[in-house]
């Protein structure tokens, strides 16, 4: 039950926003290469998601990127019964996944109907090419 798109409408692209700060570029480069990349503070090890130029815990501006395992649990979700943007066909769910590394990311499920979602459901990442120039990290039920 992945999200269905209206082919004649442009899906909002991350680049429209992401280019404002260079901090988020490695994440989207990672997604193109089918990886979830997480920014990590070199000084205190804090995982910074969404990425940012300074670690809010120790104020270091030195960071590196690690590859997340891509596994986690559903922390919460919502189901859109009316499409709030013409690119998307309702109904569909947006899930908040808590990655095993700790940070949470917003995504969609590819194989679970909205009515079958549960908080705590174990999930793993998959990648979907939703447009010629856009790949998104999505999730499916683990195991």
């Amino acid at each position: 039950m992945t999200v269905e798109y209206n082919p004649d409408q442009k899906i909002p692209h991350p680049a429209m926003w992401g280019v404002l700060y260079k901090s988020s570029t490695p994440f989207w480069e990672g997604v193109k290469n089918k990886k979830i990349m997480l920014q990590k503070c070199k000084s205190c090890g804090n995982l910074l998601n969404p990425p940012r130029p300074m670690c809010p815990k120790c104020q270091s501006q030195e960071n590196e990127w690690i590859t997340a395992k891509g596994t986690g649990k559903i922390y919460s979700w919502v189901t859109f019964n009316e499409a709030p943007h013409p690119a998307f066909k309702a109904p569909y769910a947006a899930v908040l996944v808590e990655l095993d590394e700790g940070p949470r990311i917003v995504s969609n499920m590819v194989d679970v109907k909205p009515e079958d979602l549960e908080i705590g459901m174990a999930v793993e990442v998959t990648f979907e090419d939703v447009a010629e120039d856009l790949t998104l990290p999505k999730f499916r039920k683990a195991g």
Binding site: G18, S23, F27, P84, H85, A94
Partner: peptide, 11 residues
């Protein structure tokens, strides 16, 4: 920038 992490997912 953070909208880029949610809007493409229909959120």
């Amino acid at each position: 920038p953070n909208y880029g992490y949610i809007w493409p997912l229909g959120f």
